[in-house]
Each structure stands twice: as C-alpha cells, then as structure tokens.
Design a protein around this nucleic acid. Structure first.
Length: 423
RNA sequence: GCGUCGGUACUCAAGUGGUCAACGAGGGCAGACUGUAAAUCUGCUGACUUCGGUCUUCGGAAGUUCGAAUCUUCCCCGGCGCA
C-alpha cells in the first residue's frame, strides 16, 4: 500500500472529516493545504522556510519539470523530494491543467474560477478567436508547443504517468482534461469521455510501472463534468468503480491466486469553476466518491473556498493563489486581504496580521514590507510568501482542530465574519 | 560681452505650424491574480464635467497666422566655446 488514509472524526450533518494520510515521506494531517512548487521550488522560499511556515506537503508539475530540467534528471537525482531537498510528502500534477491553461484558456481573460456575472463567462469558449493555443487536444493525447522554446511535445496519459513515476512523488494524478465551465453540454460530454478513457489508461500504466519499479506511488483519478450535476456524479461514479489488474505478484504463484483488481488511491476534483456553483459541484461529487479515500480539490485556496471544501468532505487543497498574490503584494489578514503597495501602508508600523506568529509578522512591519515591495527587493516576495502560506496552513489546521473538537461551524462563522469586514 | 546649444507634465524624454492635453519610459494612484507562460498583468495619472465636451498648459512677454509646444522679436535661466 503506497498511502494509508484514516478518518479520525467526521463533521455532524455534513460531509467533512479530519484524518491522516500516511505516505512514505511522512504523515499529512487532513484537511491540509498543499503548497505549490511547480518547478520543484516554492517560489521565493527555501524548503526550510516552507516547512517553518507549517507546510506538510508540496506539489510540483509534470509538464514544467518534463520540459525543464527533464524528468530523467530528477529521477537520477533520487526523485523530486531529494532533488529539491524537501523531505516531506510530495505530489505532482499530471499536466492536465496545462491542457486548459495553454489550450482553451490561452491568451484569454479566463481563469480557474470565474463568476457567471463576468462578461467573459458568456463568450463561447471554442468560437472566440484568440491567439493560437499552445496545447491542442486529440483523442490519444495532447500536443504541446513548449512555452520555453517552441518545441513540440506530445503528452499521452501513459507519457504523463511515466514522467510522474520518474519524478517520483508520493501522490500523482491521472492525466485529464480540465474544461472551462463555458463549454456547451455536447463538448463537456465529449471531454468527460476522454478524461475517463485517459483515467483508465493512466491507471493501467501506473500499475504496470508500479509492478516494474516497485515504487510507493499513489495515483489519484480526477473527476470532471463541468457544471452539470449529471456529469459530475457520473464522473465520480465511473472513477470510483474503475479498476485494473493489480500488480503482478513477484513470485510466480501457482495460478490459483485471484487476480487483484485495484482502483485509484484517491480522487482529485478538477475543472475550471463558476464561482457560484463550486460548492454544489463539490457536494455532488463527494456524495458519490468512496468515503474511505482521500479527496483533493484541485487548484482551490481562497479562505472562503477552503471552508466550503472542508465542510463538504475535501481533504486536500492546492493553490497557487497564496504564493502568487504574495509576490504581487497582497497578503492575507484575519480582516481580509490587504495590498501592501497601497499608500496607506507606507508608514504603517504594525505587523502584517495582528496576532500572527509567522516569521514575517514576528519580525517586520507593514511599512518595511511596503518599502521592500516599492523598492522591488526580492526579500519582499520571500517575507510575503512566508506569511501567506503560514496563514493558509494555519487556517486549515485550525479547521481540522475545530472538526476534532466539534466547533467547526462556530469557527467558520466567526472567521468569515471577521474576514469579510473591510480593514 | 559675442557665439552656440538648450529650457515640454512629478522625473527623464519625444514632438519642431493643424491629426497635441501633448509619444515613450520611470515614478505615483488603484485594480486583478484560485491544479503558476505570473517577483506578473490591466487601468488611471493638467483641471472641471450632466461623459457630449469645456477650460488652463510646453521658461516669460509680445507678435506673425484662420490656427503656435512648434515661426519671429525681446527678456529670464542653464550648458558649452571664444574673448
């Protein structure tokens, strides 16, 4: 068994739960936020700083590392964790998101989460003319034009799994197609069928490689289905029930052993969401997915969304938001986000977030960070990133603690009330 | 003193008769960012505005012209050269 998931306590009257996820590189206490280190680096931080900010697990990206430095380099370095000197658990995304971000979303003003009130939401995805996308989908796989040097690469589910095995994270994802919520029903169905076919091929190839190299790697299948309840539930069901022949026993048996059927070790919930229906989509899916396996809501990480996910049975979240907005000057506080580049912080000698015990808050003032951002000093990104991931890690850890002591809903109400009050 | 080059918005800096409230860069003021093409991107940056425009600007003053940041004259300021 490559991972072991144990539920410690469930939420009354909701799908949420607190648990532990054991990997060969340590235990993840869930629910947990997964810090993104796309290119085998959490931007602006050393692994020690990532750890000190309360991080349990880091996620890197297949597509980026395949292009640079190449997955074989990382395999030869001893795997992702050894290469980047992160001793804790690791995950890799499959490249499925790049099918979206470099494909349908390329050169357009749409992102992972859009509001249905956004004018862009009304533009039919495939009919709007934009730049020539870097990712083009075929039924067998996706052709990518490298954003680094323009070279062409063809990624199939097998290729993604092979790269991910070379990267050697504890948890990897099936190759999927992340669709935009604007896609019409016909396209959603077509894409979903493709994602399921790719999931099957990912699982088959994963089992084959696992049998060959004996690595302790867990594979998560990814649920898609856009905004449709029917498709979301169908996707969760199909992936839940999907199995392939298990690893071949090392010693040749006497032929009477029943063949082991294995499925996914956990599940990702994917897709670009309409803000307004993200919670219903998560609920639909988690009502169908098996309770005893971990669920990862891909790419979501705003405080409000984390509460929603945890309440509805999500165990893992990853998101570039906290690290990205930090580098751009926006910091989380208990009273909402603040942009340190705003004039009001130039002479604000209070700490970033009162009461926060992160390295940045203990040692520095808003005025100092404001200066660093204005002066374009690199340390600005470092101190801001430390604070933001500490803030999110702490928030999710507090949610976990509140599930364990039965105060989740009170905690949620109190936090969101304060968080939504403008500074 | 003579000659010469220059003086443009917060700064630097284009423009050398109408398409100029004036290119561009920086700075400033905001906004965005959700499985990272992102230490990135977008908007605004003379005043007023019922968003149609209106008014005041390119060292100062006076001219030429239908029209001047742009041409002329004088003045002020700065650089350089010669006395």
């Amino acid at each position: 068994m490559s991972i072991r998931f144990t539920i410690e306590k469930k939420l009354d009257g909701a799908l949420g739960r607190a648990g532990t996820l054991e990997t060969s590189h340590g235990v993840i206490h869930t629910p947990s936020f997964v810090v993104v280190g796309t290119k085998a680096s959490v931007k602006a931080l050393t692994p020690e700083q990532v750890r000190e900010a309360g991080t349990q697990v880091v996620l890197a990206n297949t597509y980026h590392l395949y292009l640079q430095p190449g997955d074989e380099i990382i395999r030869d370095a001893g795997g992702l964790g050894d290469f980047m000197k992160w001793s804790g658990p690791t995950m890799t995304d499959s490249g499925g998101f790049q099918v979206f971000s470099l494909g349908a979303a390329y050169g357009k003003d749409i992102s992972k989460v859009v509001s249905i009130t956004d004018p862009n939401f009304l533009i039919p995805e495939r009919s709007s003319s934009g730049e020539d996308p870097l990712a083009k989908i075929g039924n067998d796989g996706v052709s990518f034009k490298s954003h680094l040097d323009g070279s062409l690469h063809y990624i199939t589910p097998e290729k993604s799994i092979e790269i991910q095995h070379n990267l050697g994270a504890d948890i990897i994802f099936a190759f999927d197609e992340c669709t935009s919520p604007q896609e019409d029903d016909r396209y959603q169905r077509e894409a979903l069928d493709r994602t399921h076919a790719w999931a099957k091929r990912s699982l088959e190839h994963h089992q084959k490689l696992k049998a060959d190299n004996q690595k302790q790697i867990a594979l998560f299948g990814i649920v898609q289905g856009g905004r449709s309840e029917e498709l979301r539930k169908k996707s969760a069901q199909i992936l839940r029930d999907m199995t392939v022949d298990g690893p071949v026993p090392l010693e040749a048996g006497n032929g009477t052993l029943p063949s082991l059927r294995t499925g996914f070790d956990g599940f990702g919930i994917g897709g670009s969401f309409a803000k307004e229906d993200m919670s219903t989509a998560v609920k639909w899916v988690n009502e169908v997915l098996p309770e005893d396996k971990p669920r990862h809501l891909l790419g979501i990480g705003e405080p409000e969304d984390l509460f929603m996910g945890v309440e509805n049975g999500v165990d893992l979240f990853d998101c570039v938001g906290p690290t990205r907005i930090a580098r751009n000057g926006t910091l989380f506080t208990k009273k909402g986000k603040i942009n340190l580049l705003n004039a009001q912080f130039v002479n604000d000698f209070t700490s970033i977030d009162e009461g926060c015990e992160c390295y940045s808050c203990i040692n520095y003032t808003r005025a100092y960070l404001s200066h660093l951002f204005r002066a374009k000093e690199m340390e600005a990104g470092t101190l801001a990133t430390i604070h933001n991931i500490y803030f999110i890690n702490k928030l999710v850890a507090d949610m976990r603690a509140s599930i364990l002591d039965g105060t989740f809903f009170e905690f949620k109400e109190k936090f969101l009330k304060e968080y939504n009050v403008k500074n």
